[in-house]
Every structure is written in C-alpha cells, then in structure tokens.
Design a protein around this nucleic acid. Structure first.
Lengths: 343, 343
DNA sequence: CTGAAAGCGCTTACAG
DNA sequence: CTGAAAGCGCTTACAG
C-alpha cells in the first residue's frame, strides 16, 4: 500500500526504495547513478527500470555531503548595481552561462556584490565550500577578488583579461586590441583622419587594449596621435556623452569617434547630435560590443562584435575543465566588424 | 600541530572541531548554531569563541540532509530568452530579489525556462526538493507552471496576478487598473480626447486590467470607446512600434496614446516620429512601468511607476513567510504617475 | 541546560 | 560484478 500523500510535499523515494524495487543493494544503485561502471547489464537494466518506476531523483545534499562537491557554480558580478541594469552585456553573459550550465544540469547561483560589504559576505560563502567554482564578471578588473578566490583554492574563470599579469586565474576574453584595430582601420578607409576615441576604463586590460589598438593603427597609417582626440570613459552611457562633449570642445574638427562600448556610443550620439553634428556625414561613430544598444541606436551603430555567446560558453567549459582537474587556461576569442549606418 | 595546508583547498573545520575547542558536546554547538536556546551563557560564549577561532562555517549540505530544507530559493523566469534581455524590468526584479534574499543569507538560483523542454527539466529539479521555494516571473501568465508547482507542494510567489482566478498561489502585483486610470485621467486633463491605447498581452491580468482602467475612465468622462483606438501588444518594443502604426492608420486623428509598457512606448515613439507627429504637441504619449526605458526615451516618458523595489521585496517577504508556515497571500501595491516630457 | 546516540541519503573502499 | 559497512557533517529527540 503506497503512502501517496497527495497535497503537501510527499517524501521522495530514496536510493533504498530503488534498490528494493530493483532487487539489488544500495551500492549497486549508486554505481548505476555514477556512471554504471562495474554493473552487470541485467542489474543496470533493473535499476534503471526501478528509477523510472519510483521517479527517483538523487538527493544532492546527501551526495554533496560525501563527495565534497556542491555541483553548483556561482555567477559573481562585482559591479555597482546600476551598471548591471544599464549594460546589456551583463545580461547576455548571465543568460549564456545559465544555459551552458543547465546543459550540464548544474544550477547557477547568482551573486551580486556591488559593495565592499557584500563582497566580504560572498567571499565567506564561497570559501566555505558552498560552490564548486565561480564565474566572475567585473569591468573594473583591478579588483582582487579573482586572485583571492584563486588563492583560497576556488576554481575561478574571469570574463575579460585580469589586470595583474602573471596571474594564474583562468579567463576568457575577446581580442580587444584586434577589434579596436579593425574599427580604426575601417574609419580610416572611410577617409576620416581626425578620429577621436572615448576609451574604456584604463584600469582594465580591455580599456587599455582598445586604446592600444587605436594608437597602433593610427601610427601605422602615418596619422599622428593627437592627445586632444583621446578621452577616457567607464563604459557607461553617461561617460560616453560626457566624453563626446569633451572631444567636441578639445577637437571641434573631429570627423569620427571610436567609442569603446556601444552603451557609451549611445551617449556620444546624443552629445554629437545636440552639437548639431550629423551622423555619419559629419562624424562617423563606431562602437564596441555589438550589444542590443547598437541595433537600437539611431542610427544603428557600426561596431565590433564581441562573441558573447561563445564567451559564456567558453567560460563554462574552462570552469568545468578545471573542476575536472585541468589547469587554468586563457582563451582569447576573435571579434568582428559589423557595419551599420553610423559610419 | 595544525595541518594548515595552504594552497589547495583546506578541509574546513566541522562542528566537531568547534566542540573540542569549546569543551562541549557537538549537540551543544548545534544548539548554539540554531538559535542558542537551552544553552547556558558560559557554554554559549565558549562555543562562539571557538567558532571565531576555528573559522567554522556550517556545512549546508549536512544541515540540509537532515532538515530537509535547502535554504535556497529559485528565481524562475519563464519567458522567451530575447525578452529577458530587452525588457529592463526583469533585471530590476532579479536584482531586487537577489538582494532581499542576500539579506537573509539565502542564495538565489537563477532558472531560465524559455522553452517547453527547459520548463520540464526545471520542474523536475524543483519538485525533487532542491529548493525551498520559487519566485516566479512571467508575462504570459496563462502558463500553468505556478499552479503546477503549487500543487506539487512547492511554495511559490508569482510576480503579477495569475490568470486563473480561484488560484491559491501567492502573488505580488502593482495596481494595474488604478495605474491605467491615473494615466488616462492625466491625458484627459491635458485636453486630449482621441486617446489610443496599445495594450499588454490580453491573456495576462496585467494587460487586461490596464485596458479596463482605460475604458472605465473614458466612459466615466463621457468619452466613448472607439475600438479603432484600441490595439493590442505584448510588451515588446516591436509591438509598440507596430501598434502605433496601426493606430495611426485606423485613427489618424488621435492626439494621445497610452502605451501599456515603457518598452512598447519606445517603439511607439519611433513610429509616431516617423509619421511626422511631434511628441507631445501632436500626440501625447504615456507609458507604464517607469523603467530605465522611460528616462532614456526621447523625449523622456510620462509613465506610471511600478514600485519594483517594493515588489521584489514583497515577493521575498511573502515567500519566506510561507516557508515559515504562513498561508499564501496576495499583495497589491500602489502605482504613481510620473510626469515627464512626453505629455 | 547538556551529552550520547540515532539517523538524514548517499558514496566508496573493502571483501568477496 | 556485488553486497555489507563505514562514514560524510549535521540536527534532534531522549535521557538525564
């Protein structure tokens, strides 16, 4: 007589129920659950049938208690909260990672650490062993959390190159420098010569590399670097607007701007338009990311596509490999110029 | 001699280590951990000191195994993936819930179920008891997942009113009807009489209620309902654009539009502007949500503010109350008209 | 108030 | 290939 207490939460079947149903020991059931090695075909079949019949699902807590693994990973965003909403890139990354993990049946724990306080609490949580590994996203990559977790023995994969070289932390990044080079070459090919730049944060390798690409190509083309054409930003829309204003003031003759993120480019468009510049006739504008912001801009932005889908997939792949015992790894993914109406 | 294996992951201290350090039994340590009842002051002090000294953190898996609770909750978004990125409201909700839970030290598991397949897998995961409860966000609230989870005995709190009345599922929602009424009254007060509406999805109570509010106020004001002024959308930007186009075709003399979401209003602005209408001189445009889309629109949108911070906080509060044994509850939060330049 | 003991559901050597 | 047994780190009645 089965105690099928409908309503309320029924007590789920355990490995013991499955064993009884299949006429084998609990050890054998466990072996089936863990890959089916050293199990005879008939036993395997009986267990699988019993699992189906009982609707058995492994109790992760019991498993974790003994294996020491939690079979879950954290997605840690150390970013002021506002930025998380404003910047569509975070979303894309979060979605991609969630899905890639779901394919492995691994739940993702979302952790938002915008303040120092939150970071402390979260580090405590993570180092307590509640997570097998961490996917880390941050734009001001000067912050030491990756290094700290790594030192505490927690597998980490960072999105974007870490600031301190010599770090052994895994990361996945787009080829920022190469992307920037493509964009500036494109602008030059359009005949533009007074090309400004609104950089990303210069305490992050991404910001630095995009600026480096810009300077290299101009130098190679024999176009000198005019420091009045270089202003820095922080990837936010507001910074793009302020940056473009500064450029207009310092170098009113500019005929193109490479803005180091699409979101900043949105702000730059606003400022340029307010100043009466036509896009792209008077000033060509190039972005970076190919986020939703690029297609929604007026006019739609020519930009450098970061392969976010691949980035998140690779982050998960590298992390899982590390959990499987492999060494940390660095992955650099190629970018691509996407031509739209802003250039 | 402490085995302090730096590098690698050290084996964390257990309750046993704490007990030894404090000179008490493991039971006493556990009692301290669980509220400190039935523990003498000296014992309590000794245990707390031992906890600090050893850096003890409870092993959640061991605890969960015995308590049957996981001390974590899921945030389930049953929405096509694209919408998650496009619509800033989801972000705000996700952030709010994550933070409200973090304040209780409860991790949030993010679950994205855009496809039927994913929904199946996730339902399996949840009903297997891996989660204490679920915060559910969906806009096409016809979907039965809330009801299913509820029936399976899983505590659920939905964002937005569920479609089927008579449901005993908890929910938190803004007062959609009242918000719509405020907006239409505002438009009337501006002297507009040919007021169109682009509704939300009419298979969702939110969509239905906002339309109801619109009709009520017009009726009360003695302005008849012209069905040519009513078109339906699905909260997406594209739907807003298409909707406004349809309105312009069906009722070229319209002098205002109430668009049932800010994101749709963005699309509507595009269509109206393309048709040569000045905002707000020719056509006043009112949105709904007061999301980031409203402030970033050109011109910034007059809209109805949904108190998302309170909504997420209440969702968490209601869920935790349910975990504590309280009955399901419905919470309706007031909205507020925010006047900007689009009206 | 406190300790000893049972037990949560699983995995993993260890013998066969 | 398989079963019996130990044990993961906790909580919770149960006696005192």
């Amino acid at each position: 007589m089965t105690m099928n207490n409908a309503g309320g939460r029924r007590k789920p079947p355990t490995i013991h129920d499955v064993a009884r149903e299949a006429g084998v020991s609990r050890g054998t059931v466990s072996r089936v659950l863990n890959g089916g090695h050293y199990v005879s075909p008939p036993a395997l079949e009986a267990v699988n049938a019993a699992i189906r019949k009982t609707g058995y699902v492994v109790n992760r807590h019991a498993r974790s208690l003994i294996t020491g693994r939690s079979d879950s990973v954290g997605f840690l965003l150390t970013e002021p909260q506002e930025r998380f909403f404003e910047d569509p890139n975070f979303n894309v990354l979060l979605r991609g990672c969630t899905q890639a993990l779901a394919a492995h049946d691994i739940p993702l724990l979302l952790m938002l650490a915008g303040t120092e306080d939150e970071r402390r609490r979260i580090k405590r949580f993570i180092t307590a062993g509640h997570l097998d590994g961490v996917l880390l996203v941050t734009s001001h990559s000067a912050d030491p959390v990756a290094e700290e977790l790594h030192k505490a023995g927690v597998p980490v994969v960072q999105c974007g190159k870490p600031m301190r070289s010599g770090s052994k932390v895994s990361y996945v990044a787009a080829d920022d420098r190469d992307g920037a080079r493509d964009m500036v070459r494109h602008l030059l090919s359009l005949g533009r010569r007074r090309i400004g730049i609104v950089t990303g944060p210069l305490d992050s390798p991404g910001g630095v590399d995009r600026l480096a690409g810009y300077k290299e190509v101009l130098a190679e083309a024999g176009v000198g670097i005019d420091e009045r054409l270089v202003v820095s930003g922080d990837y936010s829309r507001a910074a793009g607007e302020a940056g473009a204003e500064r450029l207009l003031a310092q170098a009113p003759d500019l005929d193109a701007v490479f803005v180091a993120s699409d979101l900043m480019a949105l702000g730059a468009l606003t400022a340029l338009r307010r100043a009466g510049r036509r896009i792209p006739e008077d000033v060509a504008v190039g972005g970076f990311d190919d986020s939703i912001a690029a297609t929604e801009a007026t006019p739609p932005l020519t930009t450098i596509r970061q392969p976010y889908d691949r980035i998140s997939a690779e982050m998960v792949r590298v992390l899982l490999a590390q959990l499987g015992g492999e060494d940390p790894a660095a992955v650099i993914l190629p970018t691509e110029l996407v031509r739209r109406e802003s250039t």
